[in-house]
């Protein structure tokens, strides 16, 4: 557990010192979301109809773009192999790094999401559900994304590759995340959606650290 905390602390400190990273993710999210009204027109009805989907897709892309940060720098400067040589299990270290990634990308996105929802004229009944759905969904994005980030270590064209690997795996989260908000907006219960999202989160939490740790070991071998 102390290893988990040590890595978490260090990654948070790094993110803080290189502060621009988190800001960039949020900025990307806001800019992407802003593009949609230009694409589909400024009519309030249409925007309200697509708001939940747009916010989720933008959040997904923003989370994906920042994935490289989880392992790439540590891989390049040799930190990753020293981490692998430390007595702490790789799964714990991976969890620490993923949590740090979520705190620096997922959490700011959750805070920025309602702002964009307002700008897209989303019905107010969906706001709370949007926040809850993102709270359940974004950690799963970080957990799943970490596998992709570890698999592409040492590859050519890693950045493009990671999107090809990770985006298909993100589809269920997108479907249920956007579905929950839509259900809430239509006055239906979103509980079922949120329960499934919770199940996905628990499943990824239980399974992905092993896959990611395995992928990291492959990379430093």
């Amino acid at each position: 557990m102390s290893g988990f905390m040590a890595v978490l602390q260090r990654d948070l400190r790094l993110a803080l010192r290189q502060g621009a990273d988190s800001v960039m993710v949020v900025a990307f999210f806001i800019v992407t979301t802003t593009l949609f009204p230009f694409g589909v027109g400024p009519e309030a009805n249409i925007l309200a109809r697509i708001a939940s989907g747009v916010i989720w897709v933008s959040a997904l892309l923003a989370a994906m773009l920042s994935l490289e940060r989880i392992f790439q720098a540590d891989f390049e400067d040799g930190t990753l192999e020293l981490l692998a040589l430390s007595p702490v299990s790789m799964e714990m270290l991976v969890l620490g790094k993923v949590l740090a990634h979520w705190l620096t990308t997922g959490l700011p996105l959750i805070i920025a999401a309602p702002l964009m929802a307002v700008m897209l004229n989303m019905d107010q009944s969906g706001f709370v559900t949007l926040m809850i759905a993102m709270l359940l969904g974004t950690p799963a994005l970080s957990l799943i994304g970490a596998i992709g980030a570890a698999l592409i270590l040492g590859a050519r064209r890693g950045g493009v590759l990671v999107s090809l690997l990770v985006l298909p795996l993100y589809i269920p989260i997108l479907i249920f995340g956007a579905g929950a908000v839509e259900a809430a907006q239509l006055g239906m219960s979103a509980t079922e959606h949120l329960q499934i999202m919770g199940a996905i989160l628990l499943l990824t939490l239980a399974a992905t650290p092993f896959a990611t740790a395995h992928a990291v070991r492959l990379a430093i071998e």
């Binding site: 102390s2 400190r13 020293l82």
Partner: peptide, 19 residues
């Protein structure tokens, strides 16, 4: 050398001691 450019020497070393 696995040294992070934004961390001080002491902070760089601290991680390995904690682990």
């Amino acid at each position: 050398d696995a040294i992070k450019p934004v961390l001080s020497v002491r902070d760089n070393l601290r991680l390995w001691g904690q682990l």
